[in-house]
Nucleic acid binder design. Structure first.
Lengths: 201, 201
DNA sequence: TTTGGTTGTTGACATGGTGTCAATTAAGTA
DNA sequence: TACTTAATTGACACCATGTCAACAACCAAA
């Protein structure tokens, strides 16, 4: 039971997380994380062979703590496709701000580090699967617009809900988080639902 | 007439452009640009005090060569709002791939360099103004959906047409450039047009 | 054609961040 | 207490950016 090692490791991940999620955002160096943890920079490398590994481990740690599956439960148990769409946007859309710091670090590094790119890709594919499930539920209900084949509808929804777009809406367009969620629901419905004389209230 | 200086400067910009636009994309260092230009790395700094300045100058050079205004002319002279929307998407959407290499370099650097961030911001605001003009034309026609106030419609269209989204559609979703354009036209129409018994063919 | 100023070249060096290594100290446990 | 594991310190390699100084090549005008 290397309890000491485990404890330090967790302290490191916690420190990394805290710094990455700091606002205003700062550039987080290995030395910053070491200082925040209360150990030497070199000791960091005994736990994580590279910055990229530490980043990936931090993401995994987040996954664990934040329990994504629980958050997505309402979406999965929704009765109609419409409800499922709303629940999914609610869950994922409100998850983004909680992971944004780490996500930003991933996005900044994925162009230079293949391992980071792969880890990011994984997570984004998971989101895409979520989108796809929503689209399939709509199709099953017969409420998916015939304008878009399911695959394409998935691509569109997925792109619409990207972290980059969240970033733009929040920081460039000045949307509040609430407005963001409301808008995404509104837009996705208008876009993906079959045309009826539907009033989207 | 420092014709020699001017000539070298242009050679540098051309080299930078060529390398940034290279496919597959590569990370472009000052030494790479120097080599491509046929001068020493240090000589580069006699023309551009920093990498960021060189990048910004390259963008300006692109602006000049590519003549954005001419491309946007069809959009501005469109008769209806609908035509204007199509023309704008066509112009901007087909412009993106031509500047993508440089845009990518901007996006990678704007988080660390304020000057780069400002230059990028400028260009994106120009695009946003284009989007806004489109929305206003729709409103004037009375064909803008009442679901979205003009400002919000602009934000949505602008975000939809971001370089990041183009990137995702092209490389993540595997859209062809043609499919991308077609999809953006289709989505924007469906989203922004007032509900009539419109068949979007 | 020589002189002078501009442009480019070479080599050396500072900086800042990542990652490595070796020797040493401090804990924690058998 | 003795052994193992974890952390510390200090030094160093690497790589990209950016700076500096001394020197060479070029072009133009007198």
């Amino acid at each position: 039971m290397s309890t000491r090692r485990t404890k330090t490791r967790e302290k490191i991940l916690l420190a990394a997380w805290k710094l990455l999620e700091a606002s205003p955002p700062i550039s987080v160096r290995m030395s910053d994380i070491a200082k925040e943890t209360g150990i030497s920079r070199q000791a960091l490398y005994q736990h994580f062979p590279a910055r990229s590994e530490l980043l990936i481990a931090t993401a995994r740690y987040l996954d664990e703590v934040k329990d994504v599956d629980v958050r997505l439960a309402p979406s999965r148990s929704a009765k109609s496709g419409a409800e499922r769409l709303d629940a999914f946007i609610e869950a994922w859309g409100n998850y983004i701000p909680e992971i944004y710091g780490v996500a930003k670090a991933f996005l900044a590094m994925k162009d230079t580090d293949p391992a980071v790119a792969a880890a990011w890709e994984d997570r984004m594919q998971a989101v895409k699967h979520g989108c796809n499930a929503v689209i399939l539920a709509l199709k099953k209900d017969g409420t998916l617009s015939p304008n878009f084949p399911p695959k394409k509808a998935t691509d569109i929804l997925w792109t619409m809900l990207s972290v980059r777009n969240w970033e733009q809406y929040r920081f460039e367009c000045g949307f509040s988080q609430r407005t963001y969620i409301k808008t995404m629901k509104q837009v996705s419905k208008r876009l993906l639902f079959i045309d009826t004389t539907n009033s989207n209230k």
